[in-house]
Computed example of a mutant assay.
Amino acid sequence: MPTLILVRHGRSTANTSGVLAGRTPHVALDDQGVAQAAALPGRLARIPLAAAVTSPLQRCHETLRPLLAERPELPLHVEERVNECDYGDWSGRKLAELNDEPLMEVVQRHPSAAAFPGGESMRGMQARAVDAVRDWNARIEAEHGPEAVYLMCSHGDVIKSLVADALGAHFDLFQRISVEPCSVTAIRYTRLRPYLVRLGDTGDFAGLAPREDGTSAADDRDAAVGGGSGGS
C-alpha cells in the first residue's frame, strides 16, 4: 500500500494572531508561512510523488503553490474530508478567550466526547479524515502501484487524528501529538498495519530551546487547538 506524506499548511495569519480560524475563508499564510512553503519543494525534492491531495482552504493551497510550480505534472485533487475541523461558533474567536469555555477542558482531556456548538464533533472529524485516507490509499495503489508515495496537505487537528489512528491510539490521546506549521509527517500503510515513519518533521529544532521567559514548549499544560503557530 502507498506511503502518505502529510503536510500541515504553513504558518497563517490566524496562527500568529491567536485566532481559531477553523473554516473561516480568506485566511492566508503570513510571511513566515510563505517562506516555509517556499522551502517545501527542496525538502521533498528526492521523493517521487504520485499525486497531491489538499484541503479546500486557502492556506493549504498557498502552501502547495511552490511545490506545484516546480512539479507542474503533479496532479492536485481537492478533498473536502481533510478540511479543517468545523469549530462552529468557536470559529474566528481568540484562543485566549476560548480557554475559559467549559468545553475546552473536554477538548483537552476527553476529545472523543467533544462537539463544537454549531459545528462538528472531534470524533466525526477523525472518522471522515480516516475514511478519506483509506479511499485515497486504494486509489493511489490502483493507479500507481503499492510502492507509490502521495502527499496530503491538511490541518493540525486533522493530521494529529490521522497519526493517532495509525498508531492504534485511543482518540483521547491525540492531544499528546504535536505537528507544527509546514511540518512533514509520513505514514507507510501496509496490508496489516500502518507505520509512522516521520512525525512533525520541520528540520528545525529551535522550538525545543527554552523561551525568553525560561519555559519551553513542554511546559504548556494544554494542546494548541487548531495546531498552534509553532515553536518560533
Results as ranks from 00 to 15, higher is better:
107 V>Y: 07
231 G>T: 08
208 L>H: 12
87 Y>N: 02
54 T>F: 01
139 R>H: 10
95 L>C: 09
122 M>I: 13
102 P>H: 03
156 G>C: 07
29 L>W: 01
173 L>F: 12
194 P>Q: 00
168 G>V: 13
51 A>I: 14
28 A>Y: 01
116 F>N: 07
34 V>W: 03
125 M>L: 15
74 L>I: 12
163 V>P: 02
167 L>N: 00
172 D>M: 01
204 D>S: 12
60 C>V: 12
51 A>D: 05
146 P>I: 08
114 A>V: 01
210 P>H: 03
24 T>L: 14
159 I>Q: 09
120 E>L: 11
4 L>H: 00
159 I>C: 08
231 G>C: 06
164 A>P: 04
91 S>I: 00
212 E>Q: 13
73 E>N: 08
190 T>A: 09
99 N>L: 15
105 E>C: 05
2 P>Q: 09
4 L>F: 06
125 M>R: 01
69 A>E: 14
225 V>Y: 01
165 D>Y: 10
197 V>K: 05
183 S>Y: 09
181 P>H: 03
131 D>W: 13
183 S>C: 09
211 R>L: 13
73 E>D: 14
137 N>A: 07
136 W>S: 00
155 H>Y: 07
174 F>Q: 11
168 G>M: 11
90 W>I: 10
209 A>F: 14
142 A>C: 07
206 A>F: 11
109 R>M: 10
57 L>K: 01
216 S>F: 07
72 P>F: 10
53 V>H: 11
120 E>Y: 00
192 L>R: 12
195 Y>R: 15
216 S>G: 15
193 R>D: 01
199 L>Q: 09
164 A>F: 04
69 A>K: 14
230 G>S: 03
158 V>F: 02
92 G>K: 09
129 A>M: 04
182 C>A: 15
3 T>W: 02
21 A>I: 02
22 G>F: 02
13 T>A: 11
209 A>P: 03
219 D>K: 09
158 V>Y: 07
33 G>Q: 04
223 A>C: 06
19 V>N: 05
19 V>T: 13
199 L>C: 12
142 A>Y: 02
52 A>Y: 02
193 R>F: 11
133 V>R: 03
118 G>E: 02
228 G>P: 10
130 V>M: 01
126 Q>P: 00
157 D>W: 04
159 I>M: 10
181 P>W: 05
153 C>G: 06
126 Q>T: 04
184 V>Q: 07
202 T>D: 02
136 W>V: 04
65 R>H: 08
77 H>L: 15
19 V>M: 11
38 A>M: 13
70 E>Q: 15
103 L>P: 03
204 D>G: 03
55 S>N: 08
144 H>S: 11
149 V>H: 06
69 A>P: 03
39 A>V: 05
31 D>G: 13
145 G>P: 07
81 R>P: 06
140 I>T: 14
162 L>P: 00
101 E>K: 06
163 V>R: 11
64 L>S: 08
221 R>F: 06
64 L>N: 06
33 G>I: 09
220 D>K: 15
31 D>F: 02
61 H>G: 10
127 A>H: 11
197 V>W: 08
156 G>F: 02
15 N>L: 13
203 G>E: 05
56 P>H: 07
72 P>K: 12
49 L>W: 07
149 V>I: 14
33 G>N: 01
167 L>T: 04
205 F>G: 14
136 W>Y: 08
160 K>D: 01
141 E>S: 10
104 M>S: 12
159 I>P: 00
206 A>Y: 08
165 D>K: 08
